[in-house]
């Protein structure tokens, strides 16, 4: 493993921002894969997953288990600058680096950061980014493929190799055109976004589970010999198949009965919204279908019109 610096940016009053990568294999190897942990300062679990992945890949390298003709890049954080001061987005102007791809090296600051990262990873055959959702909450770990172009169909099939329970295909909306995942595909990289259960907290057990999935994928694509614990037979769904459960009539305390990943039956109480003044139940959120909790709001407070859960129906 070599630690390399992909990009640096001078900043006022602080050390320069550095985007660092763990690099395995020759820089000019014919096959390559990149894993990007975080582009936002609150993606701590994503950064942690990559840090441990570097440790596991280093151990594999010492034992001669990495392919000789391949290069692996792992970038735990493209935005340590925000993480170190507890900010999610770029602290100066609140722009999101993951809305700046492919970047522009003569443009605004976050466009330059995106360009610096993209330049280093755009020619990889495979790209994995560990993202987070715009709604805060927990997920059932899954891999998603945004349908950008013709390469996406093959990517969807390859995504099975992660062995996560769900492969989600997503129809891009206007903002997708500026994400890392989408732009990788424009450059003909097979791009996958892995959504881990947590974002701003570390869970070592689920971190290992996500690393196992990434190593399973790397094993299947011939980058590393790994016998990660067997994964799931993936179910393919479209993002539009998910059923939302929303707080329709009230805001208040959010008292939750279920976790992401749990099976729930139609009519089951998933959570209640309790009054912020006297605590009485204002609204009961029930499962409209039998299925699995795919996403769950986890904050203790909830506003009216908040998507509290997304369920995968058991029967299509």
């Amino acid at each position: 493993m070599r630690k390399t610096t992909l990009f640096t940016l001078d900043t006022p009053y602080r050390e320069p921002l550095s985007i660092c990568a763990a690099e395995f294999g020759a820089p000019d190897a014919p096959r390559s894969i990149a894993v990007v942990g975080s582009t936002r300062g609150n993606e701590i679990q994503q950064t942690f997953i990559c840090a441990q992945l570097i440790e596991r890949l280093s151990a594999a390298e010492e034992r001669g288990l990495l392919a000789q003709d391949a290069r692996i890049l792992v970038i735990p954080s493209a935005n340590p600058f925000s993480m170190n001061i507890g900010e999610r987005f770029w602290p100066v102007d609140h722009t999101d680096i993951n809305r700046m791809f492919p970047g522009y090296d003569a443009g605004e600051t976050t466009q330059r950061i995106a360009a610096g990262l993209f330049e280093a990873v755009k020619d990889c055959d495979f790209g994995i980014s560990l993202g987070s959702y715009y709604l805060p909450g927990d997920f059932l770990t899954h891999v998603r493929v945004t349908h950008a172009n013709a390469i996406s169909d093959e990517s969807l099939q390859l995504a099975d190799a992660f062995g996560f329970p769900y492969v989600v295909s997503r129809t891009p909306s206007s903002f997708d055109t500026t994400t890392l995942n989408y732009n990788w595909q424009v450059w003909n990289t097979h791009a996958f976004t892995v959504l881990a259960k947590e974002t701003d907290t570390i869970n070592q057990r689920t971190a290992t589970y996500v690393q196992n999935g990434i190593l399973r994928f790397m094993n299947a694509m011939g980058f590393v010999q790994s016998r990660s614990m067997g994964g799931s037979l993936a179910v393919h769904i479209d993002e539009s198949d998910l059923v939302d459960v929303r707080s329709e009539s009230a805001g208040g305390f959010f008292l939750r009965n279920v976790e992401s990943g749990e099976r729930v039956v139609e009519g089951q109480t998933l959570a209640v919204v309790a009054d912020g003044f006297d605590g009485h139940v204002r609204e009961t959120l029930r499962a409209p279908v039998t299925g699995y909790v795919f996403f769950s709001h986890t904050a203790p407070l909830i506003n009216q019109y908040t998507i509290a859960f997304k369920l995968v129906p058991e029967v299509a």
């Binding site: 208040g252 003044f277 009216q304």
Partner: peptide, 10 residues
Amino acid sequence: SAELPVGEHL
């Protein structure tokens, strides 16, 4: 109008 958690509307 949307109800916020504690005694207020947006």
